[in-house]
């Protein structure tokens, strides 16, 4: 059960983190927009791999999920702000 939750965290949660990372950096990197997209997308697989490693290395299943959720939330907030919803 614990393993299944970690697999889900790594595969699904990790992908979500990588996708949010890619989207946020594509908008946020200070370079021409095509370059930002390429840079962010190329780096995304390293982020994905790191997220999967975290999902299995975290001391507990809850910590694994909480860590990914925190990063995802932070990235989502950055993305939200970058999309023009600046306060």
């Amino acid at each position: 059960m614990g393993i299944a939750l970690r697999v889900l965290a790594g595969a699904g949660g990790g992908y979500a983190v990588a996708a949010l990372f890619t989207a946020a950096l594509s908008l946020g990197l200070p370079m021409p927009r095509a370059e930002a997209v390429l840079t962010a997308t190329m780096a995304s697989f390293a982020v994905y791999a790191a997220a999967i490693v975290w999902a299995f290395a975290a001391p507990g299943v809850l910590r694994a999920w909480a860590g990914l959720a925190a990063v995802a939330a932070a990235l989502a907030l950055v993305l939200f702000l970058l999309q023009g919803h600046l306060p």
């Binding site: 996708a19 989207a23 908008l27 962010a40 997308t41 190329m42 995304s44 390293a46 999309q83």
Partner: peptide
């Protein structure tokens, strides 16, 4: 392995281009 992923990155990870464009 990494370059193999990069070859199909726009299929696997389309969220950057989807957001910026």
């Amino acid at each position: 392995t990494y370059t193999g992923l990069v070859l199909f990155m726009m299929m696997v990870m389309p969220w950057g281009v989807g957001t910026a464009y």
